[in-house]
Design a protein around this nucleic acid. Structure first.
Lengths: 158, 158
DNA sequence: GGAGATTAAATTGTACACAATTGCTTTGTG
DNA sequence: CACAAAGCAATTGTGTACAATTTAATCTCC
């Protein structure tokens, strides 16, 4: 318990805890910061961009998944407390509409407006520009992605 | 430009963009959620825990770095707009004190109280419990850490 | 030594996150 | 049909993040 060995293990765990968890948190914010100047041009925040990525994807998909707040929340792992105000802001910008579903009044259905679809064109350069901004070889990015993927799977599998 | 090859590359970049950036963001939030029940027991939020980890580390370090808001901000990559209210809450909980530095009145010096030091004991089980909660082999965690480390280095190097 | 630049923290304003609660709607059961 | 249970979005309240501005102290250079 108080042996040097035990202490060394504790130190290692503490170090790993600090490194893994702080750095994940810092890296996530750093990536958001990289996106900011690109998304500013589109008048979007990073979470708003993620929402639109999903809606654009669904817009081209057959059969189209029904784009409700709930479905969006599952996809992005966000709840209505976060999404409702965010979607209201996108609606205020004229990018989408929110309507109670006629068949189930509990649900709210989302639909891109023409402006929302048009924005996809302007956003099409974002991924490439962002990947360039990281200044990392593609191979490195693919490896990081796979590792984070693995981590996220493990964290959400349960 | 409009060739099939170019389109395939675009799709791949778009996919990578979506996967890497969304998943990093999601993984960071998922980890925070894993910490929550453990930190609730200590009355701390995740960013507050990170602040205390740094202060505890500095408390045992010789020579001690001078624990100012600025130094803390550099370590955690957070600015005074985030740290000031957070530190005020930790001060209100009696875990630390904030005092204008006598030698330079622009700076605010932070000092752990006895309660702040005592909390380190109670927090000592957090890293191990957290690592268990991930349900991932240690080797996997070490690999993720190294990859995220590499990413963060690249993002903050410039 | 004093005007202007620089620095550190605090403040202001906007936008997430998320737990907990509320208000409807629908569903399931007797 | 009635009514309890479950489902979905919205709301409320707290706590970050972060850009931009403000305030106060220190530094620099002449």
């Amino acid at each position: 318990m108080a042996t040097p060995v035990r202490k060394a293990v504790d130190d290692e765990l503490l170090a790993l805890d600090r490194q893994l968890c702080f750095k994940l948190y810092a890296a996530s914010r750093a990536v958001t910061k990289l996106y900011r100047p690109l998304l500013d041009e589109l008048g979007l925040t990073y979470p708003q961009y993620l929402v639109l990525l999903v809606l654009w994807e669904w817009d081209h998909r057959a059969p189209p998944p029904s784009p409700t707040v709930k479905a969006l929340g599952e996809r992005l792992m966000l709840d209505s407390g976060t999404l409702t105000p965010l979607l209201k802001r996108l609606e205020a910008q004229g990018l989408l509409s929110r309507r109670r579903s006629p068949r189930d009044e509990r649900e709210v259905t989302l639909a891109l407006t023409e402006a929302g679809r048009a924005l996809q064109e302007r956003a099409s350069a974002v991924p490439e520009r962002l990947l360039c901004a990281t200044a990392l070889p593609l191979a490195d990015l693919l490896r990081v992605r796979d590792e984070i993927d693995h981590l996220l799977e493990a964290l959400t599998a349960g």
